[in-house]
């Protein structure tokens, strides 16, 4: 009896031990995860508190503290918004078409390179894939030469409304062109997994190559369109480099240019800078929070 009791006790003890150990590791795990949340959010938190403080407020308090009523203001947001308003509108006008165009062209290219099979596909595909990794600096000088040679504003002189926005049209075309590779790769991996029999069934049903795209492949790739559009939207919206090189007129400043200018001109007004940064980031943050899953898929598929 004694031995049995003893052994039962030990087992019980051991179980308790393990539970405690388990709990400790779990606690440690969550502590680490939450500390990391602090790390990843701290720049945003610091920015957010500062954007709601007056000048005296952010000088006299640490960015870790939220604004007290004494220092609270929303003036930086209004000021930043009025500076960046034009940039926001310009960005929306060129980012949406550039995003949709590159996704559509990428989808068409991927269809032509996947579902209609012919030799040499891989060779063409490698050219697309290599384009994903291109450092844009290596095309900047010719890009500028090209657009000054094309003189889009001159071509569009008949329509002053468009001619005045030639910079934005150039940006649209440029971003579309450089967005095609990544969009093609994203769609191709999706189309490769699509049932070949289904495409052949549609062929036998009498559908043309375009009919198959329109009625079968396109409707079935809507989830991938979501991924591609979201990824491409953040990429194009966030870009500064092409805008720096291609936008010449102030009236065509896009949001990243406005923000950069704001930062340079208001070097000591951190509250204004932070509010501006949040305004510029707002569309991408919203898209990211709503479509985080698709965004993660986009960047994971982009490798």
């Amino acid at each position: 009896m004694a031995t049995a009791d003893e052994s039962r006790q030990t087992i019980g003890d051991r179980l308790a031990d393990r539970r405690e150990q388990l709990d400790l590791t779990r606690v440690g795990l969550y502590a680490a995860l939450i500390t990391l949340v602090g790390f990843y959010l701290s720049p945003l938190w610091a920015g957010l508190t500062t954007a709601f403080k007056t000048q005296a407020g952010f000088v006299n308090t640490t960015p870790l503290e939220p604004p007290t009523p004494e220092w609270f203001t929303i003036a930086p947001w209004a000021d930043a918004f009025s500076v960046m308003q034009g940039g926001l509108i310009n960005s929306i006008t060129f980012v949406l078409p550039a995003t949709v165009l590159s996704a559509l062209l990428g989808s068409l290219a991927a269809y032509g390179l996947t579902k209609l099979s012919w030799r040499g596909q891989v060779g063409v595909l490698v050219l697309f894939l290599a384009g994903v990794f291109l450092p844009y600096q290596s095309v900047l000088v010719p890009l500028r030469q090209f657009w000054s040679a094309v003189d889009l504003a001159g071509w569009l002189a008949f329509a002053p409304f468009l001619a005045n926005r030639a910079d934005l049209i150039e940006l649209t075309i440029t971003h579309t062109a450089y967005g095609i590779p990544i969009c093609t790769i994203l769609f191709r991996s999706y189309y490769k997994a699509m049932d070949d029999d289904m495409i052949e069934a549609a062929k036998i049903d009498g559908a043309s190559a375009f009919g198959i795209y329109k009625r079968i492949v396109f409707p079935l790739s809507l989830p991938m369109f979501a991924v591609t559009l979201i990824y491409q939207f953040t990429q194009v919206w966030n870009d500064l480099l092409f805008a720096l090189v291609l936008v010449t007129s102030r009236s065509n400043y896009v949001v990243t240019l406005s923000l950069n200018e704001l930062q340079g001109a208001m070097a000591q007004e951190y509250n204004l800078q932070m509010a501006g940064a949040f305004i510029a980031a707002f569309p991408t943050i919203i898209v990211y929070v709503i479509f985080g899953r698709q965004f993660a898929k986009g960047i994971a598929g982009g490798t």
Binding site: L33, L36, V37, Y40, L41, P43, L44, A46, G47, T50, P63, T234, W237, N238, D239, L240, T256, L259, N260, Q263, Y270, Q273, M274, G276, A277, F278, A280, A281, T284, I285, V287, Y288, V289, G292, F295, A296, I299
Partner: peptide, 22 residues
């Protein structure tokens, strides 16, 4: 957790540069 850790990736360099200057 995953969403938070990945969030900076969705931000523009312009935005993150301003945050980090601060």
């Amino acid at each position: 957790f995953r969403t938070i850790y990945l969030l900076p990736m969705a931000l523009s360099f312009v935005v993150t540069a301003i945050f980090w200057s601060w």
